[in-house]
Design a protein around this nucleic acid. Structure first.
Lengths: 207, 207, 207, 207
DNA sequence: TATGAATGAGCGTTCATTCAT
DNA sequence: CATGAATGAACGCTCATTCAT
């Protein structure tokens, strides 16, 4: 069993690194800043990470992995559409909650202190999110809920972007906003935009 | 007289710097790479720029200035709404065209090799764009075209984000896409989402 | 624990810096030369000094501080003049000894590889030395040992200068000269020059 | 015949260089500063000087050459000593006048913005001045005017130093001091110090 | 294992000098 | 001859990484 202090060493360092990266970006953040913030020695950093970039990667990958797990839940294609949309809403709320909880790293990624060499990770994820989104739209079309004349590529992009930006603002808030209301506003806007029959697109207020 | 200053020098350097910054980000881009790419000596860089950061700033500021000139056109509040929307569409098309023409810098800014110290410039611009957007939505509400129940803050965010992301994709395309179609797709989605009376939101195809 | 800091490091570096500064002057001395001479890495220099100028300042300040401690000994104004003169002679001998021991830095300062920005430190010190000297002359006048017709400003200048130059030569000697004889020669010349009654000015040889 | 502007080009540059060197020292003074101050182009500098160091050398050499011409006047060894001393006084006054007129360069040399590589020129000159001085003292001894027990090396050093320092102060004065009085003060001090018979050493006031 | 002193590659910037005009 | 734009060697300093203790 490691000494109690060791248990938290890596966690302390990761947290400090997160802060440092958010504040200064990958390049400008100094390893010494990180270790000082974590109250550890400079050498200890290299007991846990191969390099500064490695620490960055671990932070990003950890975040994206947890994020991916939330986003790529299997859609039950046989369920009725109303159910799918409802579960979508629930999932998105969890997502917003997750972003809020991890707003430091989220800012890091969404604003891009990421430095060219890690951009691909965020881009890849953004692409996957958009693909997910696109599948949902296609499903909606197939079921006749959504308009047939949509350009799926551009539409999915716009939807993903709307989420993107709202989340980016979300994580920059000093106090936790009403996530549910934010989410509903976005979904309402987009669902109406997608709907074949506007009347049905209106989200029913939760009773 | 003295050797006349090479009029292409600064332009060459700016172009090379743009490339280097897009490829490696501000920190990792080396001045020597920039000058080599521009086929100039290292010293020549400092004939035109105070520092590497200065070159970066000039690129960003130049781009944002030209962009701002396009975005902040005065809206004729007395015009009828159809006219406003039409002119909005035209302006946006110019904007898309502008982004395509300047896709290198656009990528630089939208992805954010920008490094913490310049983020504020992009953020500030994004904020202005969103404010513009918000004003248009308010106007639509006042005229009765848009729903009254919209949360202006979040809605304007979502709209700005949709544009954001579409443009980000746009500038990453290897070949020039059909800007007009992309734009119409986005606007159609959003206008329908905003519309009080869905029938009227449908954009009429240009005759 | 960590590698204990090499206690000789800073001393080695200061010595090497002294040499380099004496040889090439502040500007031309290269940090890399200094560290090479000290058998250390370039980086180690910056563990001990903020900058090349800082190292220079530390050397000069250290020297001047020790020097000041020797020069500004309190004169017992109530003592009889013979005693004062004797103690003056003793102090000066210590001073000569000190300059000889520290001839490297002394040369640096007296010749002035000092670069404009540090000249003031030497000038300030020279001014203080001259003021000290002036006070002694005034005292001699008050006691009736020295002539009343002296222009104190110029006289003290000349006396300080005589010392200056002798010391400058002293520190340039390859072998330690007879400090005592040098000192006596100077003092004898000056005391005779100052004396109201030439007979009394003659220094008695130590028995 | 060169164009009128050319006639003054080198003179302008030398003057500007003097200023720049006095202000910043050889290393820190930039060629561009010099040419700007002279109202000339950077290239013109190299029409007149091989390098920055060359300009410095020309300034120093020019000054020292004119100085040497004043100092090394032939002493008429057959003249009676009173005459020699009187002519010495006259020469020294001219010297003081010369230093005052050329106080900019004088400061440059005496304070030593000279940088290691030119120190030898000043040192050499200082050595010659001291040798001159020594010869005069020897002469005085031979004629029985000066004490026989003087250590010529150290004494000449002290005398040269007294002049040195007084001149150094002289050239730093904002307003022209009474050169004659300064000179007499120094000479009086030194002559009394040297004199075998104090009574004869007293300088007679000019009638 | 933990520490932090030591290392040295790397890069931004300066500025004396050159040379095309 | 005069100009000043262009050049590139040189050097101070930083900081990620190593490693002796």
């Amino acid at each position: 069993m490691a000494r109690p202090s060791d248990v938290h060493a890596k966690i302390d360092l990761l947290r400090a690194a997160e802060q440092a990266f958010v504040e200064h970006g990958l390049e400008k953040a100094r390893v010494e800043d990180i270790t000082a913030k974590a109250g550890r020695s400079k050498g200890s950093f290299y007991l846990h990470f191969q390099s500064k970039e490695d620490a960055f990667r671990q932070i990003v990958e950890g975040f994206l992995a947890r994020l991916a797990a939330m986003v790529e839940y299997p859609v039950d294609l046989d369920a009725d559409f109303e159910t799918i949309i409802t579960s979508w809403h629930e999932k998105d709320l969890e997502l917003f909650e997750f972003f809020w909880q991890n707003r430091a790293v989220a800012q890091l990624l969404l604003h891009g202190g990421s430095s060219a060499q890690f951009r691909y990770m965020v881009d890849e994820f953004a692409e996957r999110a958009r693909t997910n989104c696109r599948m949902l739209v296609e499903l909606g079309q197939a079921r006749g809920y959504y308009r047939q004349d949509l350009d799926l590529d551009v539409t999915s992009l716009a939807i993903a972007g709307a989420y993107d930006r709202v989340v980016r603002e979300l994580v920059a808030q000093p106090k936790k906003p009403d996530l549910s209301r934010w989410l509903e506003t976005v979904q309402d806007l987009l669902l109406r935009g997608l709907a074949a029959n506007p009347e049905r697109a209106r989200r029913r207020p939760r009773s």
